[in-house]
Simulated scan of single mutants.
Amino acid sequence: MKNGYCRGCGSVLQSEDRNKPGFIPAEARERSGPLVCQRCFRVTHYNEIGSTNPDPNLIRENITKAITLSDLLVLVVDFSDLTGSLPVWSGFLGDKPYLLVLNKIDLLPERTKTEEVTNYAASYVQHIGLKAPKAICAVSGLKEKGITALKERLQKATASGTKIAILGVSNVGKSSLVKSILNKEGADFGPTISRFPGTTMGLSNWSIFKGRNTLIDTPGLNPGDRFSDRLCTKCASLLLPERKIQQKLWGIKPGKGLIVGGLVGLESLTESEVVVISFASPELMIHRTDNSKIRALLDDQPDWLNPCCDSCRRKIEWVTETITLQPNSDLAISGLGWLSFRRETASLRMTIPSGIRWEIRPAVIGKKE
């Protein structure tokens, strides 16, 4: 039986246990062309991820191995979720040079300028204490926007024989990016892509620039503090926007508040009306209601409120914290989106599941003064 690894997810192929990564029926190994495991086959053809989950320790080992083997790193982040996709890398990069790639810019609201997001990303990197990247590129791996410019950056930054590791948290779009680069190269095969977290499970190598360089696609790191990390695969996939992020203006009067996706409650404690702009998936329900009703709605999870499944709901431990936001600042919630507060200082009581990362930061989009 020939050895090898799945060209879709990078798992080592095996035919002994269908419940473990890399399973492929023995007879399928004799087929011509690139070999893919049964899990990747079902993801591609039936949109089913199954119950095989990657080992978190093995994922970290593979990522560390890829960084060690590589001369240049490409750190892919989701600009719509900088909070959930960038700070976690502070302990991984070491002294290796890297390019920062802002993916999924096709989902940003209309009239958002590329220069605005790259400038913000540069200041955000400094704010969280990461060293500066060699360059910042804004792309859409899925729409193949900005890929040609990224390839030119890679060619200029590397010599022949250079290995380039593609890094990112799960569902940030690494595999879509690799596939877009390979498409530009004229390749007829690439990694498996899907909306499900944890699709890539091992390391896979891809030759680019006519054999001049090697891309190493890595499994997505699971930070553990995003909503997508805490929910089941099905519930997590519902939080990922497929269309442009919806930008909506809210006026929150005293005694009122917002519920975001049935997962976060925000009660206004301010004595005047608070102006808020929400930036979130258009599929995510945001509901304005009385402060007195917020906790009960979070506990009851009515059907219209984008509730999570019973299994995920039982895992939630609510915590409450009082926070203050200055004008022109954002409340960013890892894996959910962000809310921008504009006119005056706002005091809020936030109810959120324990362990979810959130932060208050300068406003990303729009006027900063």
Rank of each mutant, 00 (worst) to 15 (best):
V275D: 14
V274H: 09
E267M: 01
P307C: 00
F279S: 06
L284Q: 13
Q246N: 13
K315N: 07
T320Y: 01
V274C: 07
L284W: 11
W318Q: 01
I286T: 08
V274D: 14
E271H: 10
L258C: 09
E321W: 03
E271W: 08
L263K: 13
T322R: 06
S272G: 09
V260S: 07
H287T: 12
C309V: 10
L305D: 01
S268P: 03
W304L: 03
I294M: 01
Q301K: 14
P302D: 04
V275M: 12
F279H: 15
G262P: 10
T289K: 05
G251I: 12
K293G: 01
M285S: 14
I259A: 03
L297P: 03
T322Y: 01
L263Y: 07
V276T: 11
P302N: 07
A280N: 15
K253T: 15
A296W: 06
S329L: 09
R295S: 14
P254N: 05
K256W: 06
L269H: 01
Q326Y: 13
W318R: 03
D300Q: 13
L325D: 13
D303N: 11
S311I: 12
T289Y: 00
S272T: 15
E283H: 13
T270E: 11
S281V: 14
I286Q: 04
A280P: 14
I294P: 00
W318N: 00
K248N: 06
L269P: 00
D290Q: 12
L325F: 07
I323E: 00
Q301W: 05
L266P: 02
H287A: 06
V275F: 08
Q247E: 14
P282G: 14
R295P: 12
E271N: 14
N328S: 13
W304M: 04
T320C: 02
P302L: 05
C308W: 09
C309H: 07
G251D: 15
L297N: 02
P327K: 14
G255P: 08
E317D: 13
N291F: 00
V319M: 09
S311K: 10
L258V: 10
